[in-house]
Design a protein around this nucleic acid. Sequence first.
DNA 1: GGTCAGCAGA
Length: 719
Amino acid sequence: MLPFEISPLLPLLESCKTIKQAFQVHAQIILNGFQHHVFPISRLISFFALLGSEEGLNYSQIIFCQIEQPNQFIYNTMIRGFSHSKFPEKALVFYSSMLHQVNQSPNNFTFPFLLNSCARLSTLKPGIQVHSHIIKFGFDLDLYVGNALMHFYSVFKHLNDARIVFEGSLVRDLVSYNTMINGYGLVGRPGPALRLFRKMQESGIVPDEFTFVALLSAFSSLDDSRIGKQIHGFVYRNPSCVDSNGLLKAAILDMYAKSGLMDLADRVFSSMASNKSTAAWSSMISGYARRGETAAARRMFDQMDRRDLICWTAMISGYSQSGQYSEALELFAQMEYLGIRPDECTMAAVLSACAGLGALSLGERLHGRYIGGQLCSQNIILSTALIDMYSKGGKIDSSLHMFHRIPKGLRTVSLFNSMISGLAQHGLGKSALAVFREMESVGLGPDSVSFVAVLSACSHSGLIEEGKELFRSMLDVYGIRPHKEHYGCMVDLLGRDGCLDEAYDLIRSMPFEANSVIWRALLGACKLRGNVKIGEVAAQKLIELEPDHGAHYVLLSNMLANTNKWEQAVRVRKLMEDKGIQKPPGWSYTEFQGTIHWFLASDKSHLQDKRIESMLQDMAMQLKSAGYVPNTAQVVFDIDEEEKETVVSYHSEKLALAFGLVNSSTGETIRIMKNLRVCGDCHSAFKLLSKIYCREIIVRDASRFHHFKNGCCSCKDFW
DNA sequence: GGTCAGCAGA
């Protein structure tokens, strides 16, 4: 029996709404000398521990320390409180102190809380130990404990272990099924999820909205929308399916948006009337963006009243994935201006836009500002985006440094692919092969993307035999059927080795029609080797496949011009002009003090800056005195030599270099991005200029990187 | 005193 004096305090404690009121009740308890009465103290601890705030937890811990012999309930309360907190590992500390106390042992209430804490840790181990305690203390057949165990194993994607618990359980309820269905969805196994749903119906357990939400999410990663539609129909026909907070409707909408069925998605969206959640808006935005309809996505985005971070991220990544990098960065700038702090997902999308543009200094700034060292090695998608950004921004050393800092157990196939393809673009074929082998040695099987990366590494570095062997092994060893991209790499590889006939034969032996990428690879090799016969075939195919693409006409006419077939060259040029096709303008840009400076070929508007003009003259003079003769072979027009020299000296990359030279000093690195492949003349000139002006020049062109240093280029004139 | 609770962005 409680002493009668305490009874007025208990209802007071029950009715506490704020932490302040609870402090007052605690003060009253102490003033009245009840601080050692188990019951009121238990209630107080429970109140503070379950408030959900750090302050509450700290306070409950202070009270806890003052109790000589905490009972089971108090221990469970502390474990429960910390299981939801920022420090789930503290729950384990309380559990362990509970075990050390004489006459104290856990009960069936202890383990669900404890497992919940374990599910939120970064390692699996403590949870497994807890599982053995559960068996030792004989709670393995408790329904709640079993469900919590399934949840714990699901979180770590150990569905087989979750399944063992499920199969071993004597009683199963809605929660058991929902947990398992969710778990299978989490690991992308919709098949078992659906089978469990059927089993659940056979057992007479009525599904709730969470069951359907879990099922829909399990199926949303699939391209097939049939099951999704069936679920929609099932829900529609069964009025018993309550959807009290609209979760289910939002899940159905998301399913349609993910399947690209925007008409159906829009119908559900409209039916939400004024209850549209930001989640629903996000689903719509990313649905449109995924189909490349960024304008439609943007219209939705602009219509929103209140945008949360996820909407911003959805729109930014929509732009990024559609290759609209500038738009992505512009929107991000707006977001920053509004003071919205990005998270890892936003950063991954923004960094991929930086990678696309080669906006290294912006990428570096974002890395420094928003991403700490620890965070980037933990979030593997972000690390992959950073590695890609540094590679494509020209800093392959930084990519490698990041890659090596990522713990081996966290590395994924995508991460390896990103690293291999970075090394490939920089012509570091041997290193790319080594990383590829490393991926295999840690037990990660290469996928189709890995092979594109490693084969292109071989072709960019002239590793002919290695490339051929890898291509053969794709199907024989790894069971991966080569796609067009892989054939494209092989055509490139053979072409660069001068085996043009072999490359042409490979194209003819392919089990599908060659696409423009493959023909372009062949044409590029023909141009390099001066093989007009096969080159013409390739160019004709390209013109057939992409008649509006000016670059093909230019390549063909350049090749004809290179072999002095001027008349034919002019004819091709004329054909292009008659069709009204414009040559794609060559442009280059370079970043300076965080701003991007664009340069168009022969466009002299930016030459208002006299310093660039005079630098160009200085460059020409220096080159001449170094004995350099401009290579004007790629200028097709039948104009005199002096004029041709003027044309090549105004190529966009030369203008960008002049700008870079004006704005840098000896020993610095100049980075230039170009939309087309760097021309032969610029390539030779840049080699000499890197020596003359003592600068490292890094050029990213349409196919790879060129590091010009001390008179040489990393591509060894092979590109 | 309790277990699940991915409808949204990489």
